[in-house]
């Protein structure tokens, strides 16, 4: 079976129409933007304030949307039809990832415009964002593959939201409790530290460890997706 962009695009368009009419999703999309508004009230906000909303976007949109649109196909018994169609599983997942990706980029750009976030080195930060988005996309796919309904997916997302979404706030805890120091290597904190360093003038030579850590997280997550995918029948 050859890979067909036409089918990926067909799935992307179908999901776009569907998501835009889904009240549950359309009402949760603007939530991170509220945090962008809060950040914009400070005339000179710290980088951490911007990342409050960016991390929320990554969890609430990238991971949640991806898992929700996969889980809903299962819930509504439409995934089997898709699987039996000429579209391969890779094409189905890519069509959905494309949609999530577009939504993530658009929300981050809108949010950055609201909060007034301007990275000192745009390209470096963009690459870090890209790696992070890959991580959360894979995380969302994993949740989507494991759960059977949208409700289940959003419940599973709660702990993830606490750890990764509001995670930058617990840096204060780390200073107090040494055993939590491993969380410094979490992709969200690495992304924040990278952005902070970039803002103070760091270049690629200084931030490559953070970039590598984020990339490693996404690669591990992708491998997990592949393992789960091979072992589980997607339509069950």
């Amino acid at each position: 079976m050859t890979y067909s962009l036409r089918r990926v695009y067909a799935i992307f368009q179908k999901d776009l129409k569907d998501v835009l009419k889904n009240m549950f999703i359309t009402t949760s999309l603007p939530v991170p933007l509220v945090f962008a508004l809060i950040a914009s009230r400070d005339p000179n906000p710290p980088v951490e304030a911007h990342f409050m909303f960016i991390n929320l976007v990554l969890v609430m949109i990238t991971a949640f949307l991806q898992s929700a649109i996969i889980a809903e196909e299962k819930e509504k018994n439409t995934l089997r039809g898709l699987m039996l169609s000429p579209a391969t599983t890779l094409e189905i997942l890519n069509g959905k990832s494309l949609l999530t990706f577009v939504f993530t980029i658009v929300t981050i750009m809108v949010g950055a415009a609201i909060s007034g976030y301007e990275p000192a080195n745009l390209w470096l930060v963009a690459v870090a964002f890209l790696f992070s988005i890959f991580f959360y996309l894979a995380l969302g796919t994993l949740i989507g593959l494991y759960t059977k309904s949208m409700m289940e997916a959003s419940v599973l997302l709660m702990p993830i939201l606490l750890v990764f979404g509001f995670g930058t706030m617990h840096r204060a805890f780390i200073e107090e409790y040494a055993f939590l120091s491993f969380t410094e290597y979490f992709p969200n904190i690495q992304l924040l530290e990278l952005a902070e360093n970039v803002q103070t003038g760091a270049g690629i030579a200084d931030v490559w460890p953070a970039l590598t850590i984020i990339l490693a997280w996404s690669i591990v997550m992708f491998l997990l997706v592949i393992i789960v995918f091979k072992r589980r029948e997607i339509d069950e």
Partner: peptide, 20 residues
């Protein structure tokens, strides 16, 4: 078999036409 609750009949058809 399922269907897409939020898509109109015509949107279903457009999707199937592209998919197949």
């Amino acid at each position: 078999e399922g269907y897409y609750e939020r898509l109109t009949v015509r949107e279903h058809f457009t999707f199937y036409q592209r998919l197949y």
